[in-house]
């Protein structure tokens, strides 16, 4: 069981195909798989559908894959921070499927848990419900949403042992566990790989069963909105 690879390109070797569905972790630029995105850019794979809460910013994160026109369709909840995204979307070059944020997360979690569909009250009576089955439970309407079964998941954690047991750091966890779970194959990048036994088994956030390939690297971790307070205010 060799999970640790030397580079993002090696970890993705043999996994990429034109037209595939990729689930990506991250929220904004927080906890995104920077190194794997760079390697996918270099691979030249195209016509991708990417399920990710956001689409990065111009020139960083998934924005890099938009700049190179490798993405055909995005499944996201919020895409406001990216001018190139908007240009491609408005010109019809890029498809966009809006998902409420919690619905997107649950679609990933469900896919990973072998649940092909679930009913939710999120979006009932809105555009999101159009074309979806409505069913009543206890006199209230719910809509049917489908689980996401991704060909590949790309995610980022803080630390992992060589078997893929991992922990995330603060709000960089976000979509990474559900995205990891819904991939037929999951490739994870971390800041530090440690030996089994180093991480407390009671503190593992995502067990290694969900992680197939693993790389270690250094991350830029760009901040999208730097907000601070002055010391005097304390």
């Amino acid at each position: 069981m060799k999970k640790v690879y030397g580079s993002a390109a090696e970890a993705l070797d043999g996994l990429l195909q034109d037209g595939m569905l990729i689930a990506a972790g991250g929220f904004g630029l927080c906890g995104i798989p920077e190194l794997l995105i760079d390697a996918i850019v270099d691979s030249g794979v195209k016509d991708l559908t990417v399920a990710s809460n956001n689409a990065g910013v111009d020139g960083f994160g998934l924005g890099k894959l938009l700049d190179t026109r490798q993405i055909k369709k995005m499944m996201s909840s919020y895409v406001g921070e990216n001018a190139e995204f908007m240009r491609q979307y408005l010109s019809g070059e890029l498809e966009l499927e809006f998902n409420p944020q919690g619905t997107l997360a649950e679609r990933m979690r469900a896919g990973g848990a072998g649940i092909p569909g679930f009913y939710t009250k999120t979006g009932v009576g809105t555009q999101i419900a159009e074309g979806k089955e409505v069913k009543q439970f206890g006199g209230e309407d719910y809509i049917l949403e489908e689980g996401i079964f991704a060909d590949l998941a790309i995610v980022k954690a803080w630390k992992a042992d060589t078997t893929g047991n991992c922990i995330f750091r603060k709000t960089a966890r976000n979509f990474n566990p559900p995205a990891a779970m819904c991939g037929k194959v999951c490739v994870m990048e971390v800041e530090e790989i440690v030996e089994p036994g180093t991480l407390d088994p009671d503190h593992i956030h995502l067990p290694g069963i969900y992680v197939h390939r693993l790389i270690q690297g250094s991350h830029e971790k760009r901040i999208e909105q730097r907000t601070v307070r002055k010391r005097e205010e304390a």
Binding site: F27, G28, L29, C30, G31, E81, W158, R169, K170, T171, A172, K221, R222, I223, E224, Q225, R226, T227, V228, R229, K230, R231, A234
Partner: peptide, 16 residues
């Protein structure tokens, strides 16, 4: 405080 921003710690508005 200035200088103590953590890129792994943001709110839903992506603010530190």
């Amino acid at each position: 405080f200035e200088g103590e921003e953590d890129p792994d710690l943001i709110n839903a508005g992506k603010q530190t």
